[in-house]
Amino acid sequence: MFSSNDGSIGAFEPSNININNYTEIAKTITSIQNNSKKHWEAISEYRLGNRKPLTIGVTGAAGVGKSTFINKFTEIALHNKKRVAILAIDPTSKFSTGSFLGDRLSFNGNFPEKGVFIRSIASPLDANSIPLSLSVIIKFLIIVGYDLIIVETLGVGQSDVEINNFVDIVIVIPSHESIGWVQQMKSSHHDIADYYFINKCDVININATYNSLKSLFGMKMSKRTFQDSVAVGSAKSGDGIEEFYNRVITNSEIADHE
């Protein structure tokens, strides 16, 4: 699986890489993706110490507004002096093996200027929707100094829950098209959701989605209560995002001290 020839010479020390040196960070991520043994080992063996970074996964069906949500969420994180990195996964064609990585289109073009590192990642060709290297990339970005890592999954279906294994917190953006109780009962998203953000409240009547989630919380075991988990807003206009951000961050900081 590993390749020893990664094109670079000498030992690799992840903590030596400066957070402002995008070129080095980007090249290292490529080496990780190319399964360079040296990089995987150095990062895996590195001890993070007392730092308390937060990793958030954002998931949901195609077109629910994951990228737009992350865009606004990141803007608020920047206001709060967080150092943010975004890893955005898009699908690879099983036919051509090519991919169109288009998540950046929804992100503010100024983010890199403001210190945000963004990397588009193609999904693997095997049955997984998330490459194994994602965990190494996340840890590397934490070592470099980012304290909020946001992972955007590709547009998912009913049983794509892998993201749960890679991040601390999962935010699900529900589709307004799959809110009937039959769909809700089938879907595995409720098993991994720490939070739901009901999006597009400015253009869609979200009452049906809201009520449907409320009844779901009454039927199924949940990580958190309905009141704690569910928020309503619009990623496009920004409505409700700041309040939601504060809730997610405050709750996770409280959890840290437990």
Binding site: S93, S96, G98, L101, G102, R104, L105
Partner: peptide
């Protein structure tokens, strides 16, 4: 993309 590349726009 059809030719198998990862394309970012």
């Amino acid at each position: 993309k059809e030719a198998g590349y990862q394309v970012i726009y």
